[in-house]
Structure formats: structure tokens, C-alpha cells
Simulated scan of single mutants.
Amino acid sequence: MSRRGHYVRTVLGLGVALAAGAALLFGAPAQSGEPQPVALTAAWPGAARGSVPSKLADGSEFTPGLFLDAKTSVGTAQSADSKTLRLVVRDPDGNLLELRKVPAEHRAPFAGLTLSGNTLIWVESIDGKQQLWSGDRHDPKTARMLTADVGAMQFYDSDHDLVVADGRVHWVAGGKGDETEFRSVALTGGPVTVTTQKGTWSLAAWPWAVDGQHSARGTTTLRNLTTGATVATPSAERSVTGCGATWCQMVSINEDGYSRIELSHPDGSARRKILEGNVETAITDVAVLDRFEVLAKVTSQSELSGNQQLVVYDLSNRHLVLVSPDAANITYRAGVLWWSTGDQSSYIRNSLDLRTI
């Protein structure tokens, strides 16, 4: 479950905790009239798919942070002697290209992996200090630090935590009091530009930003960082709103204590119900690629396995597609959706390139 999904469920549970909690714990029949999911192979037979074992050939763990396509990934791997953590590109045959390495005492040192052309951008955390790095995905010799002047970087487990636009890398950082810093640096490095805005903001598809990251209501405003124009987003009582540049997602609890998920454009137009029942948002981003709403359904098996059904609502034809009946650690970046199947001792990460649908 995404951080936003957990946050939404926590907030909405304040008003209807008993009803919703009972539904989630013990399960419930499908809501009448709800769409039944279509199997992935039937809905999208030509979609590119892949799978990545959790361990490398030498037995060390591999944690992907970005899929370049369904079978090529970038992530963190421990060295065979356990002394270093490496940032590597793993190709479809399991071959590794090492881009960077740091001492193993730095836990989770690589984050925010983003690709622009062949340039990979990432954040390194060393001794509690963050730095922004880049390099050609094919050439380890090109890895270089862009800047250490990153401020108090704020990541929201979103595809837009780092945004590349107009030859610059953009991110948000915590400011003084109730302020957000919008920071950027050229892809070639150099001085960092900083502007501030009251509120807690995150980036969406450039040039938009959304507020309400720490608000019980969620997003209330979109702001164009180029023109300064704003758009007030839809909201309702006992509802939490999350928005991207094109779509907003409203999550509420219905009269029976189940989740109700709706989508509309930020101006409130084209509002529609997506799904209702034992369902929650699975990732932070809303309607990725302006087409796919990624959701997780709680089933009677979820209490036993801790996993969920991974389903995707296709806005182009209003079909609900069953991607996996038993998914954990659901993640999305740059057009590729991936999730884990199996248990903690032996699991596989499965991937689906939504750009190929």
C-alpha cells in the first residue's frame, strides 16, 4: 500500500472506523453492480511484462528503484563481500552494470531514480547528507554530483519527486514554518535556484504542483509554476482528494462503511465513480499516463497473506483489469508498474510496462 493510501485510510477511518474496519478485516461480498475485473492476458495480450528475482546470482539482494522497460531495471545491490552497496543497471539476462558504490553502512543510499533520455538522475544519502547525482546509464565514468545544495528534500513516493524539464532537475524541500521550497539545478550542474510558497506542496507533471501533502482534506489547489495560475480542486465532506496535473482522485467512505473512489479533472469536470467496496489506492500518483488508475482490493485471503489484489482501471474503456491476485510492494515509476509475489524468504518482482498497452 502506498503512503498516500495508508494516509487516506487513516483519515477517513476517523469517522467510520468500526464499519470500515469490520469490512476490511472480515471481507464482504462484492458491491452489487460493481464491474468484475478482466484478466490481464485477455485485456492487454500485447503488453510487455517481466519478472526479476529478488536475489542476484551471488545470493545478494537486489532492490529495483526504476524500470527502464519491463525487463531492464536500475536499483541497489549489495556487493558479494557485503562491504558496499552498489547502484546497478540490471539487463534482461541478469547482467549488471555498476554505476556507483558506497560503503554498506549507509542504508538505502540511492533514491529518487529518474531517467531523462540516457541520463540517469538520483539522490545519494551519505552520512545523513543528501546530494543530487547524474550519469549516463551506459557509462559509469560519467557519474558526477550535480549539487549538494538540495535543502531538506521532500519525497512523497511519487513519480514526480524529481522532475526534469527545460534542461533542469526540479524538486521540493521543506522551508521555514509552513513553507515549501521549489528548487532546481541545471542538468550540467551549477547554482541552485530557490523559490518559496506557503503550504506543503509536491510536484506533479511539469509545470504543475499540488498542495495539501499534510492536510486531512488532501489537495485543494494546483499551481502552474511557470505562469503562477491556480486551479481549485474538487472536494467533499469526509473525502480526501489527491491530484495530478490532469486527474484528481476523491476517496470517501459510503453509507455502508466501504471505500468509494471517484475521478474527475482538476476543474471538477468528467467526474465518475471508479470503484466501491473493499478497495484502496495502491500508489501515490493519480491516473498514471492519464489513463490508468492503480488500485488494490482487499480479499478474504489478504488477512492471511498480507497481500492484495492488484487491479487497474482503464479510463479509455472503463474496464477493470486484474493484474495480480496476490500482490505486495506495489510501485510505479515512469510508465512501469511492478509488484512482488511470494513470501519474504522467496519472492519475485513482476513488472508491467503500461506504455506498451
Score class of each variant (00 low, 15 high):
257 G>V: 06
297 K>Y: 12
225 L>N: 14
286 V>S: 00
241 T>A: 09
306 G>Q: 09
277 G>H: 05
192 V>Q: 01
231 V>I: 13
225 L>Y: 11
272 R>C: 07
297 K>L: 13
211 D>H: 02
260 R>C: 13
310 L>K: 07
306 G>W: 11
251 V>T: 15
232 A>K: 05
198 K>W: 01
228 G>P: 06
310 L>H: 04
294 V>K: 04
286 V>T: 08
291 R>P: 02
307 N>Y: 14
315 L>E: 15
247 W>E: 06
226 T>L: 13
277 G>F: 08
238 R>Q: 14
265 H>W: 00
277 G>M: 05
237 E>Q: 10
323 V>F: 02
296 A>E: 09
301 Q>S: 13
203 L>M: 00
235 S>H: 11
204 A>P: 00
280 E>D: 12
236 A>H: 08
244 G>C: 00
220 T>G: 02
221 T>M: 07
286 V>K: 01
321 V>H: 05
222 L>I: 03
301 Q>T: 03
240 V>G: 07
230 T>R: 01
215 S>V: 04
262 E>P: 00
260 R>W: 07
313 Y>L: 10
296 A>W: 03
313 Y>H: 14
286 V>H: 02
290 D>C: 09
220 T>M: 03
211 D>R: 03
254 N>D: 12
199 G>M: 12
254 N>C: 05
239 S>V: 09
255 E>F: 08
271 R>F: 00
238 R>C: 06
304 L>T: 12
202 S>N: 11
252 S>E: 02
323 V>K: 02
276 E>M: 09
209 A>M: 00
197 Q>K: 11
192 V>S: 00
203 L>Q: 01
250 M>T: 04
299 T>N: 03
210 V>C: 05
295 L>H: 06
257 G>T: 06
277 G>T: 04
217 R>I: 09
214 H>F: 15
266 P>T: 07
308 Q>V: 14
214 H>I: 14
284 T>W: 07
294 V>L: 08
265 H>V: 05
290 D>R: 11
203 L>R: 01
323 V>N: 03
264 S>Y: 01
210 V>K: 01
196 T>L: 07
256 D>I: 14
308 Q>T: 12
239 S>H: 03
271 R>Q: 06
